[in-house]
Design a protein around this nucleic acid. Structure first.
Lengths: 121, 121
DNA sequence: TGAACACATGAGCAGATATTCATATGAAAG
DNA sequence: CTTTCATATGAATATCTGCTCATGTGTTCA
């Protein structure tokens, strides 16, 4: 019975089984939700969000970003790696210098909505 | 001099000082960026994003959410506390039962854009 | 070919965080 | 008043994560 299952999960009885099953059907796929959370997790870091906002205005080399954010080159490089693996930034090589730029313009819309959200309150 | 400062920050010379200063002026305020990152960090968790999507469809009590997400009551309660402190959910009491619901409809727009982002690749 | 420079990367560490367990709070019912 | 039930909360733990340090890679230039 579902009652047993509920007890196994939490100490209390389910009050609204209909609500639970209705909401369960309306929920997005688990895989999509997980990737969505992963995406927001990438953006939910002070260093990475600053890098993205910087690259929105101009492509930059690693050293430039390090100076801009007042952090050392290694830290920036590590975070650029994360952003690159998430498909948010790309790079082009020019001699010794590597220029990074945004790889997904749409992401800035989401970031902007984040700014709006924290601004009007 | 700025050259000294740059050496203190990273081992390399700044290649594009103009780019750096131009981007610096275009960057959003530090406080706003930090709160924005904090907001995305809240949303960037599998459990919390599932709770928010669930509450989008219906208000629910803690026990219902625990059953829906197959997690124990304590874990859900802890996360609801985080969401409440961030102003994303509110609650109303009805006897022993506490019903949680969304406190910021606009947030769902951002969450939906996250779903879109991870869906079309 | 070897020095210099921009960047990448692995290991290690310190701080943050999500969950669990045990227990407290607070309301309703008997 | 005591018990029961839904929820909250503190402590402890295990995992994750971002930074630093040292070093490796790849390119340019002398």
């Amino acid at each position: 019975m579902s009652a047993e299952k509920n007890i196994a999960v939490c100490d209390c009885t389910v009050i609204h089984e209909e609500t639970v099953s209705k909401v369960r059907e309306s929920m997005p796929e688990e895989g999509v939700l997980e990737r969505s959370a992963d995406f927001f997790k990438i953006v939910g870091d002070r260093t990475r969000i600053r890098i993205l906002h910087a690259l929105f205005h101009s492509e930059m080399c690693v050293c430039d970003i390090a100076v801009l954010l007042d952090m050392n080159q290694s830290a920036i490089s590590h975070q650029l790696r994360v952003l690159k693996q998430s498909g948010l930034v790309k790079y082009r090589r020019e001699g010794k210098i590597v220029f990074y730029s945004l790889d997904d313009e749409h992401v800035m819309n989401i970031l902007d909505q984040g700014l709006v959200h924290v601004s009007h309150n």
